[in-house]
Design a protein around this nucleic acid. Structure first.
Lengths: 233, 233
DNA sequence: CTCGATAATATGTCTAGACATAATATCGCA
DNA sequence: TGCGATATTATGTCTAGACATATTATCGAG
């Protein structure tokens, strides 16, 4: 028998999930307190606590001090997706990765960009346009700007050899990132580069990476038609 | 001073994040072991463990028994997004929610659907088409099928009064769901219903909900142009 | 030198008990 | 009755110690 022992926190989590899944505890219900469950499962309260905290993190239950724990009314709200580094995304599908650096331009932010990221309008930026390929075919089109005030060294980097993304990962400390996902129609130039019809629906990922208050880099990735992003368990 | 006490697990997490963010510990580096950190911070090892586990969950560090803990090489991979119930999404933006039930049809699965979900080809399904509105304007178009073998009662439900989604939330126990996100061009009928140009790029969310091995319902949501899904902190 | 058994080690988890904290319930007073 | 102070309670967190487990390092035999 490979069943999970019921007095491990994962076993308790599974049992609580089962009771919720089978309707024993219904959405909105108050479930027994930690001491009661610990008693039932014959384990320490801390173990029950670990299990319930995990379930609360995943949004299945809601907990409040003194008020107790209840099953969430609107179940699936938080979802985790993986936004892979493109190279790994491609290679993970068993294909060969390559990229073309299409263009590179020193620039200052447009008023909209300057306002959005709190940059001075004479802040030095580098704009980079890259086409990522899978087995030679277009995979995603990347439009990126990098804040030279924060990362001046990138001005001298050989971005033909290493993609800007990988360069930044290797040279900058980790930091906070914000993502958004949307859809957009391919412009004529995007269509040409991605080898699709103008107006085709593209999946768009925007990512901004920050170091403290200063934005390091902002990226817009337009995936070739057919790209699907899936949730992980 | 509202600074977080350094010997609470959240304080330790913050300190570890700071050391990573400021480059003290660089991507790929091995960081000190739990006992060493516990000693440095003057707390129990379990407290350090809690902090590091949390950071590992968020993908900032990677941990292996005996091998130790190191800073992740490819920082931002796991991202959490909220996929709200549409009514709450609309009302959360301060708008009035309404919906039209466009159509409803008893059906059996197409061969593709049957294969995908492991259904018999004579399994009874209900197909539902709904237009969700925000302040009267089209917001999202929903195409849904419900597995009548699992939820026979929905055949008699008044789905003009309560949307199918809310009915299911209220009557079915919570269960596992799978999501995918993509982009698609609006068909002529979709364009008419969503009040946009045919071919416009639509953001698509697919969701399948399972009870054990049996799929309960599958939904395809096509959002009106302009919809952006953002990550939560 | 290679391979398999064994030792060493960092993380994973559990326990029992304690105190902290937030939110609710209740009581007493005006 | 209304309201503020107080008690109660469920969860949140920490500790010190113990044992479990995965993985790596090492050592010995062939």
């Amino acid at each position: 028998m490979t069943a999970i022992d019921t007095n491990s926190w994962q076993g308790i989590r599974a049992e609580v999930m089962r009771r919720i899944a089978e309707g024993e505890w219904r959405p909105g219900d108050l479930i027994p307190g930690e001491v009661e469950l610990a008693d039932e499962f014959g384990c320490a309260r801390a173990t029950v606590n670990r299990a319930l905290q995990d379930l609360a993190d995943s949004g299945l239950i809601e907990r409040k001090r003194k008020a107790g724990t209840r099953v969430t009314l609107n179940p699936v709200r938080k979802v985790t997706v993986e936004v892979p580094v493109i190279r790994q995304d491609v290679e993970g599908r068993g294909s060969r990765y390559s990229f073309d650096l299409l263009g590179r331009r020193e620039m200052t932010p447009s008023p909209a960009i300057a306002a959005q990221y709190g940059l001075r309008d004479d802040a030095p930026l580098v704009g980079l346009w890259t086409l990522h390929r899978t087995d030679g075919s277009p995979f995603a089109l990347e439009e990126r700007w990098v804040n030279l005030a924060v990362v001046p060294e990138i001005a001298n980097a050989d971005l033909e050899a290493v993609s800007a993304n990988e360069w930044l990962v290797r040279h900058m400390p980790l930091s906070r990132a914000e993502f958004s996902f949307s859809a957009a129609s391919a412009s004529t130039s995007e269509a040409r580069l991605l080898d699709c019809e103008p107006g085709a629906a593209l999946f768009i990922v925007n990512r901004t990476t920050w170091a403290g208050d200063a934005p390091i880099t902002a990226v817009r990735l337009a995936y070739a038609p057919g790209y699907v992003m899936e949730t992980v368990v």
